[in-house]
Write a protein that binds this DNA or RNA. Structure first.
Lengths: 348, 348
DNA sequence: ATGAAAGCGCTAACAA
DNA sequence: TTGTTAGCGCTTTCAT
């Protein structure tokens, strides 16, 4: 520990009591006579004493630390979730340890081990390999092993890990809300831009998209679903590709996230098309980018404070063996801005 | 600790050696005969054993944890710094504990105490009360106390805290680069939009702005410097105010950060002005917003990887009593995009 | 080179 | 109600 670190022994000595009594005052774990309690509290205050968290967690069954692995905190979606998780954790006296995975499997593995070494009470992972449609077997093994000791919570999935809890965004529902809205505006030809088939959440979105479109007799063709990465360059490329060989141009684009939507914005401008007059655009995640965009981007919102609350309370429930449900869904909500409007062209 | 947690005793027993030997293998702290070493390593591998970090840090003088307090991780500037710090820390076998301060003094105080309770090896704070031009005396006292045990590193300042190290962005330099560039484009009337006088870094920026402008005979008037908050609404309001009572309209706006610049973008559009033809706009921090903006925003960049490296190596040097310099500067660099161009109007 | 034993700071039985 | 004591998991003398 730090140089001349103060301990409960010093406090005890100065207060004229035993270390145990100091501990009792600290933890409120047992009755202490008001007189001694006051003295102890004063000495504690005098030195601004804070018990050593490491020593505590050696005894306690809990470290009161939650490990959080996210793909990249620079993405505002993850940043929002992390902030809300941190607040929810704080409220319960828990601390968050954050790990960025940065698309680096090595780093992801090390982060996991590191959180285990810290004996965190639970691990929450958002993004990266829990988003794979087909879980990476190597990673599954790693997590399976660790999850025998530490509950593993994710917003994605990891096939074959027993001690795993999931909170999933209700993509089916999101797509339905989005498409119903666009249909009501008269859109019949809608494209789905961005993302990849091997990403679980994207796969679900696309499946939901196709099913809904078929069920509601929207115009559907494979050229309306375009792969891309998840940033604005992806959006730009996706739209460019869409435009290149298009049988019938769509009147609306649903984008896999806000970044991609902004890439589509740029592409539309470069093609001299106006938003929303010539093309309606929708994003997902309702990050602040949606608010910042010109025109404001209609986007699917997830109640982030509720999201954080749910993740943390799930993590703690699992850590306390309360057997919470293994799969929960988060209900989305649409935020309508200026990027969507009535279809300009209603020919089928 | 977790339920049936495995310890070095189990490892030792199964390997037929003493716990001390296992420890020696783990830490490479002393020679162990190759034979035993191999056995121990195999058992460790078999159980994927990771020594309990809390138990280690009880003995060790170091916890190998660095506490990081940032104003708000959702701001891409902070997010970038945090990611780079995390990488730099990882490289040295250190873990980062992140705290968001969220403009909540209570939370800021608690975060500080919490990091102390964890006996982190160093505390880095970016944003919030270390940005006050006049340091909050209460906070100074808190940090002063804690910094007697844990070195305190910041990108701002905290008057009267001895054990404090600073890495500051070289605002004077930044402003000079920005203004020289705009002057070279023929701009004579330049406004400085956004931020507040009571924020240290903004104050320095404005002082540098005024001094440079005077020294280079640019048109200077108080109406060209407008207060606002630091997000895009601030930028919008600042520009609106600027436009309301303007003796001579400027031909370029330097904005305190990229968010504010995007607010200015929006205001300009609402006034029917084009960027950069009617007005050049510059941002600061070169976040991805600058890249995303339409047109691309010219912005002042700080070498983020270097920034993270410098912060972490400074933190560790201070933690190891190596007496590093108490104040270092970070050299900025301008990234030119499409939001700046030759002045349209050269009348003084 | 190796093991026994002490101790890091704290809490929780167990006595008193 | 209070103090004494043992022990959490690890590392590190100190012997051997």
């Amino acid at each position: 520990m730090a140089k001349d670190d103060i301990t409960i022994y010093e406090i005890a000595k100065e207060a004229g009591v035993s270390p145990a009594t100091v501990s009792r005052v600290l933890t409120h774990s047992a009755r202490v006579s008001p007189a001694k309690k006051t003295v102890v509290e004063q000495v504690i205050k005098k030195y601004h004493f804070q018990p050593n968290a490491a020593a505590r967690s050696l005894i306690d069954t809990r470290t009161h630390i939650i490990g959080m692995m996210v793909a990249d905190i620079r993405n505002p979606f993850y940043a929002s979730v992390v902030v809300e998780c941190e607040l929810a954790a704080q409220r319960r006296g828990y601390t968050l340890v954050l790990c960025n995975l940065l698309d680096d499997k090595q780093l992801e593995n090390r982060s996991l081990e590191n959180l285990y070494a810290q004996r965190v009470d639970a691990i929450i992972q958002i993004g990266s390999r829990v988003d794979d449609r087909c879980s990476d077997p190597d990673y599954v093994n790693r997590v399976r092993r660790i999850s025998q000791r530490i509950p593993f919570i994710t917003t994605g999935k990891l096939d074959g890990v027993e001690n795993c809890w999931r909170i999933n965004l209700d993509q089916r529902r999101s797509l339905a809300i989005a498409l119903e809205y666009l249909m009501a505006l008269g859109h019949q030809r809608i494209a789905f831009l961005g993302g990849r088939w091997d990403v679980s959440s994207t796969w679900i979105m696309r499946q939901s998209f196709i099913r809904f479109a078929k069920a509601h007799h929207l115009y559907v063709c494979p050229e309306y679903i375009i792969d891309s990465n998840y940033d604005e360059t992806g959006g730009y490329q996706a739209f460019t590709k869409l435009w290149a060989y298009m049988p019938q141009p769509p009147t609306a684009c649903v984008c896999v996230n806000d970044f991609v939507a902004l890439g589509v914005y740029k592409a539309l401008r470069d093609h001299g098309m106006r938003i929303p007059q010539d093309m309606s655009v929708m994003g997902f995640d309702n990050t602040y980018l949606a608010r910042l965009a010109e025109p404001g981007l209609t986007s699917m919102d997830y109640d982030y404070p509720a999201f954080g609350e749910q993740l943390i309370s799930l993590a703690l429930a699992a850590a306390q063996d309360q057997n919470p449900p293994h799969l929960q869904y988060l209900i989305p909500q649409m935020v309508i801005r200026q990027s969507t409007a009535a279809a300009s062209d209603r020919t089928p």
